[in-house]
């Protein structure tokens, strides 16, 4: 564990909680892509199946359980409790165009051709593009609430910090996971345009165009 990874994990946690609280407090999921949230629930589920097979640390186990729990809670709020406020018409990204190629890629390029490992690889690839329906939705409506941009910023920051974590681990531990690194770079790049807008507009009154 290094500082980049710890802050990265906490940033990820902050993003998830910000989104949950935003929906809960406003009793509305307007402007939130349910599809992205379903993809994240799939990401956590397929990645953390190792909860059943291996124990890494109490921290690791707790965070995984919290991430999974929050992901499903978010999906529940969007599609069940506050579904009347869900803006399905603007959430029109075709997720099969992500899930099918990503599934194929996971079968082709992985560290080990085993069930759990392919699911892990699938989750890594899928996470790198899971935010696309959300970014697509914002670009379509041309606007995002400030709180939604904070959510996206924390989510992007988490991945950017993981890049520093991998540089750190390469130098000090000789650790090197090509699949995670390439997917992490792709994921971070997807946020660059957003980061630029977030910083220059200073989180105020949004007319967001991507």
């Amino acid at each position: 564990m290094n500082i980049f990874r710890l802050i990265g994990d906490l940033s990820h946690l902050a993003a998830i909680i910000i989104l949950l609280l935003k929906i809960w407090k406003s009793r509305s999921c307007a402007g939130i892509s349910g599809k992205s949230q379903i993809l994240f629930a799939i990401v956590f589920t397929t990645r953390y199946l190792d909860l059943l097979t291996s124990f890494i640390s109490l921290y690791n186990t707790c965070m995984k359980v919290i991430y999974i729990g929050c992901a499903y809670a978010t999906v529940y709020l969007i599609y069940m409790k506050f579904r009347a406020t869900y803006d399905g018409n603007h959430d029109s990204f075709r997720v099969e165009f992500l899930v099918v190629p990503v599934g194929g890629l996971a079968v082709l390029i992985n560290h080990d051709f085993s069930f759990l490992e392919i699911l892990w690889t699938f989750s890594i690839y899928l996470e790198s593009v899971a935010i696309l329906p959300q970014l697509f939705m914002i670009s379509k409506t041309g606007e995002a609430e400030t709180i939604t941009t904070h959510y996206l910023f924390c989510l992007g920051l988490y991945r950017a910090l993981y890049l520093f974590n991998w540089i750190w681990r390469f130098y000090f531990e000789g650790f090197f996971d090509m699949i995670a690194i390439v997917a992490g770079v792709v994921q971070t790049v997807l946020y660059c345009d957003f980061f630029y807008l977030y910083v220059t507009k200073d989180g105020k009154g949004y007319r967001f165009s991507i």
Binding site: R5, D9, H12, R47, D50, S54, I56, S57, N60, M63, K64, Y67, N110, H111, D112, F113, S114, L116, E117, W120, Y162, N165, D177, A180
Partner: peptide, 10 residues
């Protein structure tokens, strides 16, 4: 591939 790697990150 030399066995399943242990993934210690989140």
């Amino acid at each position: 591939a030399e066995g399943e790697p242990l993934h210690d990150e989140l």
